[in-house]
Each structure stands twice: as structure tokens, then as C-alpha cells.
């Protein structure tokens, strides 16, 4: 695992000149809101969102259904446009960040293309971005190595389990070395054992590759285990209730979840969630 990550870094070009100063937040939302029309009148999906996400943060967005956590992620990715307030991604508009291909997005479902083999699914972003053919294959193979799927390159998606398919989609998001990883409940459909393994994988990836990750979840232990910052949200209207810093060391073991420090964080998240509910 570590070896593969190192290998992937070797194939990287020299670190590019940082387009944003280190103190500039990767995502900066001020008074952000999104209202969309519906047959029953306008629905406020996001209300007065103020959030700054720094370089190297692992931010979890947690909350019950309808709290706008996925919508917020989609606004950052420029998959939907906000109707009010301001947001910057890498110092520019979300659209510019998307056109710069500065983030990788992992969806709730693997969203693999069933007619492509695993390796060709991972190569897809490179084909679109026009990476040279030889480079493409090498990068895709390295990314599959990172998620531990070297031996499955020639398989088709349907020949893989759900957990393996989701790992392919993570490899696809990582394969072009984006600075920012956006993940929308990527492990929601998986069993708990697979989810534990992938959480551990993701923690190592984040710690070793110095990624910035924004991670949507509805699992308190998952948020507490993975994050450096937990954003607790509440529905109707979708808003931020509390932002909780997680002081635990970046590299984490599954056993951590039994320690008092971890349970304390989980408890604070749970209280904040309950607090959000009591507004109704």
C-alpha cells in the first residue's frame, strides 16, 4: 500500500507552482444558499452556509437526509449552481475549478461504464483530458495499485464485488492526481466489514498523499474516524449546525474507535445532530 503510494508519487511531475497561497482556503463559502422551485413551492436546500476548508483538511459533512450535504458537495463540484451567497474553490469559481479538472468526484454508486474493462474505466478521465496513451496506462495502473486492485485490470465491472467496484471508482478519481477529492457517501451501500477496510485505506491515502477531502456521510463513526473537521448539518432548511474539530493524529488504526478520545468526538457529533433535530 505505502509502496504503491510512493510509486504513484514518483510518476508525478514536479510539484506544480501552487496556484493558491497556502493560507488560502481550498473551499470558501459565505452566506451560500440554494433554493429550487418545486410543485409545493420553493425548497431551501441550503441556507446561509459559511464554511472554509483548508488545504489538507479531511472534512466530513454529516446530517440526516435532506440536510443538503450532497447538494453542498454538488455546488462545490459545479454540478448545481447556488442561488445566493458566494463560494470559491481554489480561489476561483467552482466552474473554473471544474474546467481546470482540479477535483476528483466519487459518487454514491461506482458509476463505472459497464462496457469498459476496469483499467479502461480508470483511464477514462485521461482519455477525456488527452493524456498521452503510454502515460495513461501507467497512471491508471498505479492508481489501481493504490486501491489494491492490480490483478483486476482486465476484468469487467460486473465481475467485481460492490466494494471492489467502489475502489475502482476511487482509483478513477485519484488517477489524474487531483488536489481535491469529493466523496458523496461512497461507502453507503457497502457492508460494515468492507466499509472498515475502505475507511482504513482512505485514511492512509489522505495522510500519505496530503489530499484535501470533502466527504459526505450519515455515519457518525465513519465521520469521526476519517475527518480532521466534522460539519454537522440539519434539514429544512439545509444548514450547518456546528463545525467540530477532530484533534486525533492523522494516521489512524481501527482500534482507535474504542478509545475515550474517539468516543468523545463521536459523542459531540451525536449531540450536535440531536441539537439540529430539536430546531424542528
Amino acid at each position: 500500500m505505502a509502496g504503491h503510494a510512493a510509486q504513484l508519487q514518483e510518476t508525478r511531475p514536479d510539484p506544480p507552482v501552487d496556484p493558491t497561497p497556502a493560507d488560502h482556503p481550498v473551499v470558501d463559502a459565505n452566506g451560500l444558499s440554494l433554493v429550487f422551485p418545486s410543485p409545493d413551492g420553493p425548497v431551501t436546500a441550503l441556507h446561509d452556509i459559511n464554511l472554509a476548508i483548508g488545504r489538507g483538511d479531511f472534512v466530513s459533512l454529516i446530517g440526516p437526509s435532506g440536510c443538503g450535504k450532497t447538494t453542498l458537495l454538488r455546488v462545490i463540484a459545479d454540478l448545481v449552481r447556488p442561488t445566493g451567497g458566494a463560494i470559491t474553490v481554489n480561489g476561483g469559481t467552482p466552474e473554473q475549478a471544474r474546467l481546470d479538472r482540479s477535483y476528483g468526484y466519487v459518487f454514491q454508486a461506482p458509476a463505472l461504464y459497464p462496457w469498459r474493462t476496469v483499467i479502461r474505466n480508470v483511464e477514462l478521465p485521461h482519455e477525456i483530458m488527452g493524456t498521452a496513451r503510454s502515460d495513461r496506462r501507467a497512471k491508471a495502473e498505479a492508481a489501481l495499485g493504490v486501491v489494491g486492485l492490480e490483478g483486476f485490470a482486465r476484468k469487467f465491472p460486473w465481475q467485481l464485488s460492490g466494494g471492489m467496484q467502489q475502489r475502482v471508482s476511487i482509483a478513477r478519481a485519484l488517477s489524474f492526481d487531483p488536489e481535491l477529492l469529493l466523496m458523496d457517501e461512497p461507502f453507503g451501500a457497502l457492508d460494515e466489514i468492507t466499509r472498515d477496510t475502505l475507511n482504513l485505506h482512505l485514511n492512509r491515502l489522505w495522510a500519505e498523499k496530503h489530499l484535501t477531502v470533502i466527504f459526505v456521510t450519515h455515519s457518525i463513526p465513519e465521520a469521526a474516524f476519517l475527518s480532521s473537521k466534522i460539519v454537522v448539518m440539519s434539514p429544512r432548511p439545509g444548514r450547518i449546525v456546528e463545525i467540530i474539530d477532530n484533534p486525533l493524529p492523522p494516521v489512524r488504526e481501527l482500534d482507535l474507535r474504542e478509545t475515550p478520545a474517539f468516543l468523545e468526538i463521536a459523542h459531540r457529533v451525536r449531540v450536535a445532530l440531536r441539537h439540529g433535530q430539536s430546531y424542528e
Binding site: A77, D78, L79, R98, L99, R101, Y103, G104, Y105, F107, Q108, A109, A111, Y113, L124, P125, I128, M129
Partner: peptide, 12 residues
């Protein structure tokens, strides 16, 4: 499906 289309959009 919508996710497959969104994926294309994330790659511009």
C-alpha cells in the same frame, strides 16, 4: 444514468 452523466461533467 444520471451519475454516469455527472461523471462526464466533473471531467468537463
Amino acid at each position: 444514468d444520471p451519475l454516469q452523466r455527472d461523471l462526464m461533467r466533473t471531467y468537463s
